[in-house]
């Protein structure tokens, strides 16, 4: 376990992010034109990378089951559409999702640690995590304590991630940085390294509960971080932008960014996920457009 001073020295020793340059590069990566067969492959890849998410106070077991059915077979009219990467729910609904997805090969991801605010005692956060794992969650999406991070208490954030990782057991740990609350790109880079050093298997942009959620420049900085982290340590960490990605065009921009910034190694559901709910329908509409040659409409797809 590092000391607070060592952590602080390391994180503040990271090179700063050129904000204008990062915005510019992210915008430029969004101008690539991906068409026809490449688009078809990108759409299927994006579907397979999707963490199909429902995180509402009004979630019911029935809604989760409906979502799981859609995760297994996104478009009944096109059986060749791939299944999604995972289904992401609150920890108390993990059991329902696990039952509904049994045998499908799709894992259940659960948010935990007092999502989305992360304002709870550590014992409560760990109990939340253990309950989700015990119910069968294969992946845990934890939130960091942004208050501690912004106050400069990096050691506390580090310890929480280490403890949560221990509570996860075999389950993968995704660490949500909630970049919309971190204010600067420098903080995004520091939080990324902090989470990776503490043992995160994935770093995730946002909870989706506050705006801005995932943005291209923030995701690009996180992709740079996982690339540099692998160069430095040999361990490969995944990235998951979540929140605000609603259109196929946006999703494809992210895929281009993964390929250009982190490299093609990350173009797999094991290392890149997109957290979204309404995105799936748009991907399916585009998929049908490519297959049938006519524009599709939202009336022809399920609502959730």
């Amino acid at each position: 376990m590092p000391t607070g001073a060592e952590l602080r020295g390391f994180l503040h020793g990271l090179p700063g992010v050129d904000q204008v340059g990062a915005d510019e590069r992210a915008a430029r990566l969004g101008t690539r034109s991906i068409k026809t067969t490449a688009k078809a492959r990108a759409i299927d890849l994006a579907i397979s990378m999707l963490d199909l998410t429902t995180l509402e106070g009004a979630d019911t077991a029935g809604k989760v089951r409906a979502l799981c059915a859609k995760a297994v077979r996104p478009d009944p009219a096109q059986p060749d559409a791939p299944k999604v990467g995972a289904v992401c729910v609150y920890s108390d609904l993990v059991g329902v999702a696990v039952d509904a997805l049994r045998g499908s090969g799709i894992g259940v991801a659960s948010v935990a640690t007092a999502f989305p605010a992360g304002r709870a005692p550590l014992e409560a956060k760990l109990a939340d995590t253990r309950a989700a794992v015990a119910a069968g969650a294969a992946e845990i999406d934890m939130v960091i304590d942004r208050g501690a991070f912004l106050a400069g208490d990096y050691l506390k954030v580090h310890e929480e991630i280490v403890e949560t990782k221990r509570a996860c057991g075999d389950a993968h740990l995704k660490v949500i940085l909630e970049t919309g609350e971190l204010r600067t790109y420098d903080n995004v880079r520091r939080a990324s390294w902090l989470a990776m050093r503490a043992g995160a298997d994935f770093i995730k942009t946002s909870t989706g509960k506050i705006s801005p959620a995932a943005t291209p420049p923030v995701t690009m900085i996180m992709l740079e971080a996982v690339r540099d982290f692998r160069d430095a340590t040999g361990r490969t960490v995944g990235v998951k932008p979540a929140g605000g990605i609603r259109t196929t065009k946006d999703a494809i921009k992210y895929l281009v960014m993964v390929n250009e910034v982190a490299g093609p190694d990350w173009l797999t559901p094991d290392l890149f996920r997109i957290g979204a709910s309404s995105l799936l329908n748009d991907l399916l509409m585009q998929r049908r457009k490519l297959a049938t040659g006519v524009y599709s409409g939202p009336d022809h797809f399920t609502l959730d």
Partner: peptide
């Protein structure tokens, strides 16, 4: 033709 075939029209 695009308007006629559009599924959301």
């Amino acid at each position: 033709p695009w308007l006629a075939s559009h599924m959301d029209v």
